[in-house]
Amino acid sequence: MTSETLPLTEYAVSARGLTKSYGHDSTRVEALRTVDVAFARSRFTAIMGPSGSGKSTLMHCLAGLDTADAGEIIIGGRDLMTLNDDELTMMRREQIGFVFQSFNLVPTINAKDNILLPLSLAGKSHDREWFNTVIDALGLRDRLSHKPHELSGGQQQRVAVARALLTRPEVVFGDEPTGNLDSRTGAEVLSLMRTSTREMGQTIIMVTHDPAAASYADTVLLMKDGSIVGQLENPTVATVTEALASLAE
């Protein structure tokens, strides 16, 4: 079965039998133990779990930043596990968006060029209307000519979100996107992300350890010791905190 013949499903991202381990023999750590997971389209999903639960590894593998030992990962009808580095790079360019915890922007170029970077790397021109929609939604119009170091932390993250949304990717991954922000700015960024799933139909998968951040998601997946151990729909800060506490037991 080649990746091209896989049928498009209702899921933006799905993975089956994903395993990954680090180290050798005595130092061996199983970061992912045969994880089966699927993320529905146009949903905002948060992955939570204690440190070392494998949530970051799962996200890195799903995003094609890291390679799993076994299993399959389907995004946009293609199995990431069968792609070489260049094909993976093209996937990241076209199908996947990123918002990292920090150091999201290339420091030498201004906000607008940063937002357009994945498109310029692909040598494509941008859809002007969509660009305007995104930057207005994120309130970045006044900041486009600023260099990253001239922007506040929240503004930098909003630029990163804009960059992720602009290519209309199959999925946007967030790796603790509000980890470096104060709670008010963090809330602002998270609202924007939720809005983009509701109004633009964007699929978002976010890793976080902050129950407040997770409460913005539609669904919360709970991980422990490399496996998915639970799921919460329409989470609140309280239910998330409770679920996390039960994991620790």
């Binding site: 930043l65 260049d86 790079t89 093209m90 990241r92 990123f98 990292f100 994945p118 790397l121």
Partner: peptide, 11 residues
């Protein structure tokens, strides 16, 4: 970061 955003190794 550039690699994550779609810069190929060759590039």
């Amino acid at each position: 970061l550039l690699r994550a955003l779609g810069l190929k190794k060759k590039q």
